[in-house]
């Protein structure tokens, strides 16, 4: 899977990495059990500081998406369902986005379609 970063973007590089890895898993490009490159190799290939990659890996670990195994590196976890905690966190995260949509006059149906289109985009990649 290709990873693409934009150093001039407002979004921090480590966040760009985190988001792309999560999207990669959602699309099925990266599978549970796969391992991510070592921090040094990944940073060298992107020409970024090792701290940047490290920060992204720790964020992914905190979210429970990967586990960092000494010597083996970062491995994608196998997920078995979500809990209330995750549900609440995602809900809080979506709130400002949905609020913005309402402010600009999007109906409930429009918002549902928007969510559906995103889900379809990821699903399409799997099929």
């Amino acid at each position: 899977m290709m990873i693409r970063i934009e150093p001039d973007s407002d979004i921090a590089i480590y966040t760009q990495l985190t988001n792309q890895i999560i999207e990669g898993i959602a699309k099925g490009d990266i599978k549970p059990g796969d391992s991510l490159p070592s921090v040094r190799a990944f940073a060298a290939d992107l020409g970024v500081n090792m701290h940047t990659v490290n920060k992204s890996y720790h964020e992914l670990e905190k979210k429970g998406i990967i586990r960092i195994v000494p010597k083996s590196g970062a491995i994608i976890n196998i997920q078995n369902g979500y809990d209330n905690e995750l549900y609440t966190r995602l809900r809080e995260g979506m709130k400002p986005q949905i609020a913005e949509a309402i402010v600009f006059g999007m109906s409930e149906k429009d918002i549902q379609n928007l969510v559906k289109s995103v889900v379809d985009e990821f699903k399409k990649s799997i099929d």
Partner: peptide, 12 residues
């Protein structure tokens, strides 16, 4: 032009 850097996760 937008400057970007790419890598392939499986390149190694």
């Amino acid at each position: 032009l937008k400057q970007v850097q790419v890598t392939d996760l499986s390149i190694r």
